[in-house]
């Protein structure tokens, strides 16, 4: 048990130390493969909306100040069309970044764009992304039968860090 823990800690340290082993080719292959399982049938937008809604409302519950940030998209009525559309936007962005994992230059450009979109939203903080990442990592294994936590963590970390890179706090 202790040895396993050491290995995991070692991997985490390794991941922080160098970008090379973070979300390797094989890591994002696994991530893409496991992510694809969700979109098997035509009702994918329903899944995306439902999943996105859950993630965002959970985030708003954990960090109450977040609810104000999503006022523009009517978070008071999470079942309403405005918030549904927003959930879909966010999940689609996540889908795009996951699908771009095997094209680093394009991924960098897409993440840069997303970072800019969050930069101009007053009040969004890095801490929110950290929490969102935790919620996502907790939620994915509930919908995915096959979930490789190490691969997902190393890839999501990179994605969320870059999206939050232009924020001050």
């Amino acid at each position: 048990m202790l040895r396993q823990l050491l290995v995991i800690v070692g991997l985490a340290v390794c991941c922080l130390a160098s970008d090379e082993h973070c979300c390797s080719e094989e890591d994002h292959r696994i991530v893409q493969h496991q992510w694809d399982v969700l979109w098997r049938d035509t009702e994918s937008s329903k899944i995306k909306i439902g999943f996105g809604r859950l993630l965002l409302t959970k985030l708003a519950k954990e960090i109450p100040e977040v609810a104000d940030l999503f006022k523009r998209v009517d978070i008071e009525h999470p079942e309403g069309p405005k918030f549904a559309a927003h959930s879909l936007r966010i999940l689609n962005a996540l889908d795009m970044t996951i699908n771009l994992l095997d094209d680093p230059p394009a991924l960098a450009a897409a993440l840069d764009h997303l970072a800019h979109q969050h930069e101009v939203r007053e009040g969004v903080k890095k801490a929110h992304f950290k929490k969102f990442g935790e919620i996502l990592a907790g939620g994915l294994p509930r919908v995915l039968d096959d979930y490789d936590a190490l691969a997902w963590k190393s890839c999501l970390k990179g994605i969320l860090t870059k999206i939050a890179s232009k924020l001050n706090a």
Partner: peptide
């Protein structure tokens, strides 16, 4: 490359 490296 089909694995190991993120190279075009």
């Amino acid at each position: 490359w089909t694995s190991c490296e993120d190279l075009p």
